[in-house]
Nucleic acid binder design. Structure first.
Lengths: 154, 154
DNA sequence: CTCCTTTGATTGACACGTCAATCATCCGCC
DNA sequence: GGCGGATGATTGACGTGTCAATCAAAGGAG
């Protein structure tokens, strides 16, 4: 009884092995990409996400909350991160003329240059470590797996 | 020329879409599992990893460096984490009798109880959010994808 | 036995993330 | 106009992670 009851609830050893392999590999991949970005471009993944969103924005500026939405971050996380990026001269904060509560985040010349210098190395690394590591079928399967998992996360 | 040269180096839009879906979903999954563990059991994923390794060890104790190896952490990370866990009474540090430099990490009664209380909820969540979200074929594919990716990471 | 290098572990500084609290402004409603 | 709740953003406290520096004990070479 215990055996059959359990099997409906707890993963088998093999399922657990796949789970660990999957989640640890994804983490290792993220870490490796991040380390290369840091080593080659002196940017963290967070910096890259912020700079990407700003680069694509009208006039290279965004309302703080809009930026947070674009990259899927909590506001406070963004606020802390912008503080660090501002210290390094990658972005600048300006007051918003249409809403005195608001802040606008502006890409600086240095920020723009840093992003331009980072994009090719970063995308090359994505290709090398992810796209080229998989067969076309596996790449398709990876997309479907992500979709299926995301559906459960709601 | 630019077009063909580029295509050998940079991912296509579709490849990039898959990449983002994959890495963001893995991250979201990790976050959700971690949040549940925290909410239901008051343990972080790090706590869980440490407690799991100690639970499986002889006499529920391990040399600090052995523990770090088991869970794949840097020593300093472990040292910081053990400090926090010790404050909460989950583990205890003892001097090592065979090597005066060494420290042994010992699972306390509370630590053991916390781990016992966490394992079923955690594994259930893994089944619900990962195993049950995928078809058997997808689960197999996920394992193969992880293996292929890991091969490139060395 | 005495150097001197290696090893086990900790520490400090700093980047990153989350949560709760704060604070000013905006805006609907009377 | 003015009050009161929503909204935009920042801050502080704290857990987490990495890197470089530190420090004591171990262990081999002379």
């Amino acid at each position: 009884m215990t055996r059959t009851t359990r099997r409906r609830v707890l993963p088998t050893t093999e399922e657990l092995r796949v789970w660990r392999g999957f989640i640890e590999t994804a983490e290792a991949l993220r870490a490796e990409l991040g380390a290369r970005l840091q080593a080659e471009c002196a940017l963290s993944p967070g910096d890259y996400a912020v700079l990407l969103a700003l680069s694509e924005a009208e006039e290279r500026r965004l309302r703080s909350s809009q930026l947070a939405d674009d990259i899927g971050w909590e506001r406070s996380r963004l606020s802390h991160h912008l503080g660090r990026m501002e210290k390094r001269g990658l972005i600048r904060r300006e007051e918003c003329r249409t809403d005195n509560r608001g802040a606008e985040v502006v890409l600086t010349t240095e920020g723009s240059a840093a992003f331009r210098g980072a994009t090719v190395p970063h995308l090359t690394a994505v290709r090398e470590l992810f796209v080229d590591a998989l067969t076309p079928e596996q790449l398709t399967a990876a997309g479907e797996i992500a979709t299926a998992l995301r559906a459960k996360l709601g």
